[in-house]
Amino acid sequence: MTHNLILRLVSKTVIPLIIVFALYVQFHGDFGPGGGFQAGVILGSSIILYALVFGLDAAEKVFPSTILRLLASLGVLLYAGVGVVTLYLDGNYLEYTVLADTQIAGQHLGILLVELGVGIAVFAVMLIIFFAFAGRGRP
């Protein structure tokens, strides 16, 4: 698809918008529909669109597989790590209330961090799976 001018131009315009929308879904998930899972998938799909139009190698230059593996682990660790931090702050596992002075602030911080972990993990795993599937077509 590398020769298709219209596709290249349109996707160049659309990809930044998809990324912004993914960030909106990620951080606005407390107030509207959405959250880490959907945001991760949307962010992943922007890179997948890039890979479909500009080629797999170009996309893997942006996110090499080593970084993706680190990101996937980082997302899971961030989520589980929040739980460990609450344990150290004399709370139960994943009891966000102890993270800040007031209960509301603690819950807000905890949910934000946990959703961020979900988003990072889902984004990285989606790309890992896509690159693994698409990479098999290479000679």
Binding site: D30, Y79, L94, A121
Partner: peptide, 28 residues
């Protein structure tokens, strides 16, 4: 209790935090 207007997010991330952690591990 959580100050989060979206009940779905509150349930997923806070009340059912263990379940969501499990889901993330499934994806991983």
């Amino acid at each position: 209790e959580t100050g989060v207007p979206n009940i779905v997010t509150a349930v997923l991330a806070s009340y059912r935090g263990f379940d969501t952690l499990g889901e993330v591990f499934v994806i991983f």
